[in-house]
Simulated assay, not measured.
Amino acid sequence: MSSLSTPESRAMGQAGPDHLLVLLDPVARRSDGESVRIARDVLCGGADVKVALPESPSELDRALARRGRRRPVVIGSDLAVQRVLQALHRHRELGVDALGVVPVGGPGAVAAVRALGVPPEPVAAARAVIGGSSRKLDLLIDDADEVVLGDLRIHPYRRSRPGWRSLWAKFSAPEQATAPAGHPRLRIEADGRLLAEVHRPPCRLDVTVPAGAGALELLLRTGGEPRRIRAGSLTVTGHGFGGEADGRALGTLGARTWTVHAGVWELVLPAE
């Protein structure tokens, strides 16, 4: 899981009314409109707020490009937060503004931001956005410039289960690939060092970013005792393997590298 990379923090909202761009996840608005309304009311009561409802990556890009001095705030799920981080990274604006988050969704849909310390309740989360402190976080980014907010899983290829997803994800998720023919195989390297070559299941690789580590942690299961390894980068070359990042299917792997970028973005959390 992405995590705090430094204890440095900066208090928010101490120089007059804050100016916010509130980005509403359309799925959150439809599935839990009451929580969205409560959060928006609290934010409007303590800041100068402009609300946007982007339903595609292009609309999200336009809203962020026109925000001026407004600080972005996401009301929605982990996936909605990931899409905003992706857009900011694409425009090389990660860390320009501290991001505020009000999580709205089921426990699994907001697990990543809650693990980072964002309050689960709309009122408490909205108040933290206004009066909290910004803290620097690490982020996992692959060689295709895709960011990972939460966790990454690699396993023998399987189709993901159908389910409801944010429209932001629907418009920008990669096409689902068909599982390739032949026996599965996977080559795993950490910091350029070969860790394992797997030629048949069972095999599963879970990747997280522990708090303050500035590194990723790999949990590799190949049938025996699980292995834990810390590294700054991970490269996998796979045939017959797929996976998920932040709940999004990666399709078939081919070859891909993920690298930890320390302290590249800021999240507003409750002041201590």
Rank of each mutant, 00 (worst) to 15 (best):
A80K: 04
S160H: 09
G105L: 02
P120W: 03
P210K: 04
D142T: 09
P162K: 10
Q86N: 03
S172I: 03
E225C: 04
H261L: 06
V129Y: 06
L24N: 08
L218Y: 08
S134I: 03
G251S: 10
G150L: 01
H89K: 09
A109C: 07
E55W: 00
E8S: 14
S35T: 07
L149R: 00
V42C: 08
D78K: 03
F241V: 01
A271P: 00
R230W: 01
G76S: 08
L219Q: 11
P174I: 11
D246C: 05
A215K: 15
V123K: 00
R230M: 13
R227V: 15
L167T: 10
K170V: 14
C203S: 14
L250N: 02
L167Q: 13
L267T: 05
A255I: 04
V268H: 09
V147E: 05
R70N: 03
L140R: 00
I130K: 05
L195G: 07
G214H: 01
R135G: 11
V84P: 07
I130W: 03
E175P: 05
S77M: 09
V110H: 03
R158E: 14
L94V: 08
Q86T: 04
L219C: 13
P107I: 06
A125W: 04
A109P: 07
A271R: 15
T252V: 15
S2P: 07
